[in-house]
Design a protein around this nucleic acid. Sequence first.
DNA 1: CATGAATGAGCTTTCATTCAT
DNA 2: AATGAATGAAAGCTCATTCAT
Lengths: 227, 227, 227, 227
Amino acid sequence: MSIPTPPPSAESGKRSRRKEARPGELLDAALDLFVEKGFAATRVEEVAARAGVSKGTLFLYFPSKLELFKAVVRHNIAGRFDEWKLEMQAFEGSSSELLHYCFFVWWERIGSTKASGITKLILSEAGNFPEVASFYRKEVIDAGQELIRQILRRGMDSGEFRKVDLDYAIYIVLAPMIFLMTWRHSIGMCVPDELELTPEEYIRLQVDNMLHGLCACQKPSSPPPTF
Amino acid sequence: MSIPTPPPSAESGKRSRRKEARPGELLDAALDLFVEKGFAATRVEEVAARAGVSKGTLFLYFPSKLELFKAVVRHNIAGRFDEWKLEMQAFEGSSSELLHYCFFVWWERIGSTKASGITKLILSEAGNFPEVASFYRKEVIDAGQELIRQILRRGMDSGEFRKVDLDYAIYIVLAPMIFLMTWRHSIGMCVPDELELTPEEYIRLQVDNMLHGLCACQKPSSPPPTF
Amino acid sequence: MSIPTPPPSAESGKRSRRKEARPGELLDAALDLFVEKGFAATRVEEVAARAGVSKGTLFLYFPSKLELFKAVVRHNIAGRFDEWKLEMQAFEGSSSELLHYCFFVWWERIGSTKASGITKLILSEAGNFPEVASFYRKEVIDAGQELIRQILRRGMDSGEFRKVDLDYAIYIVLAPMIFLMTWRHSIGMCVPDELELTPEEYIRLQVDNMLHGLCACQKPSSPPPTF
Amino acid sequence: MSIPTPPPSAESGKRSRRKEARPGELLDAALDLFVEKGFAATRVEEVAARAGVSKGTLFLYFPSKLELFKAVVRHNIAGRFDEWKLEMQAFEGSSSELLHYCFFVWWERIGSTKASGITKLILSEAGNFPEVASFYRKEVIDAGQELIRQILRRGMDSGEFRKVDLDYAIYIVLAPMIFLMTWRHSIGMCVPDELELTPEEYIRLQVDNMLHGLCACQKPSSPPPTF
DNA sequence: CATGAATGAGCTTTCATTCAT
DNA sequence: AATGAATGAAAGCTCATTCAT
């Protein structure tokens, strides 16, 4: 009315910051809920509510629930692998130590964070959204497997690791990680603290055994039996 | 084709024979669809159609979709562990061989069959049906873990395996199994034959490495570093 | 097998008696359930079960649920009015006494029996099945009203009762009856014995007041006010 | 037709005005249909359609069909009794006149309006929804009975009425009312104008007889006979 | 941009009715 | 005649999506 010009910097600044933050808040809320309840059981209204906006607003930013889901996946796989790769190449210790290092870094940055929920989510919904799954496989899994492959090759090249078929050996490293993420987001949530198992100790033992095996004896000279 | 009339004797009592077969047919159909699409995305009408009956018929045998789900889980975990336990106790080879043996038996009886889909299903839906998940944990997971525990203890008692914390070590054995089931029913379905990896070879290498480790060197005397 | 001829009279007699009793048993079961739960909330399977036959058998005797309903109504209004009429014509006491008498006879034969449920049922379902309702009105209500009309006329002719418009006066007698049946089969069932009101005392007081009115004073000479 | 643009000012806020009107419109539609067809035979889609909205909209305001039913009952018994009580206490005529007055007021405000359908509805559905019935009994019936009780006590205290057992006498007043409501919403709808009976004349005669009785003779000195 | 009332397709579940045995 | 397994048309309810404000 009679107020000539409202201070444009303060108000509009706060508002536009809010506005630009919207998609991110929605993605965070959606991540939480998708991980917690699955795609089908998550209602868009809940997502909107948790992000503090109305249902209509969500559809302003994402044209459908499925697109929101895709965006959540895409948003949470920001190329973490590049920096990781660099760290690995700069690593100066033994390959055993590198393996240890990578496991704990993975735990810190992925395994223990919300990002782990994404993996569980994808594995759960892969059947319903193959395109999302194969997108994830290409963008995330393959990059991770490549990283693992490099670590193993490094160890084998230096003579520290035995020679094994890399295409299969990567799963020796991958399996304990995927298992831990899957477990903690499903069955693990049912009986939380019964035995007080800690992920850290789980990882320590997995890596230790991955390197040295269960056998107390010397390295095998004969191939194992087949049934 | 040229057979004009199907043997009428076999047809007599067709209806009553079907009646006894119905629950099984429905459970099989439901297993397929639940595993393929998840609980929520599976429509009961689809289940009925795949079992060759109408929607209403399904509800003649199962009072609700959730009860159908529970029945599927229950039906597919019929006490397999008892015979398994006996086989294991009768086993006369080394503990390494026993571990090998168990893995391949597991693959034959569970891993490669539809039963593996159940595990994937449970892990996916655990968040939505905690009661089902904790039922499964008690009935299946715990029994499996006990079996693994016995194998490891056998090896440790005989001096064949190193001494490790059993509560964690069981996951050394469990993780590759769960991972394989999860993987094949999700991401693994997206890129089927790309690299021609076979589950058998996966298992062989996992067990081999589980026993002997990646390290070419002698057994460790010093604890691994922590980061 | 080798038994030449089973006694046909005993066995087949029992069976055919059974067979002929079927519709009646079904009608009884249906009456109970329709009265108790209403038409819509009664499942034909329940009716069959209570009658001790299968669902299919019911449809052998009654082509549809609606026809069953109609049959129930028809079956339960057997011309009781004829004998009643005779009793009334033979009655030798005063008209007041006749009114009393009729009320208590009605209570004994209708009000306190399952037959009262029919009336309540018809009143409840009249909106859904007008044809049933108007059939009931013609066959039952009108006959009852005619009976009441005769009683009142008898009293007026003898000078025992005041002159009143018979078309309306019949409701003075009908209302307490219908009300009692309706009440006992609905609201009355919620708070059964709170005050220990007995139908007999209810009837006694209704008839008494119907005859003598609430006023302690003499009969009115002036018409009542209108608002 | 020739009006090109409807006045925009009146249209502004149309949606929000409707929002406030919706529950009332739905309750009105539901009242009509429940009374007309009963609870079970009324489909929520019909209710919605009659209120001019879609099925989903109804569930925006009422979480289930049963809650809608309860709301209909609750909405139509808004404390009418308070004002009524005051009117009654302020009444200055004789108790006979008061009784007359109350009957006609009841007819004007309840009996002849849609509210009377509620009573019929409750009586019909009492068996299926005991909680609703007993809620209604407490909130409505009991309040009504209390009112009747006061009128009768007033007459008895002043010596205008004979002494009668109040617990039973209230039904002398209640029965003609309940009967009329039940009748008009059931059987009465089948043969609408056959005899041109008017509710007003029905009430007039009921009250008149309630006060003075059928007997042309003096007040009774001997108790009536029992059979 | 943001809202949230409104929509209606779609799903689970019920149950009168049919019909092969 | 009797059975009861099978059917499928409804009905209640949910929720992603739209759109007037």
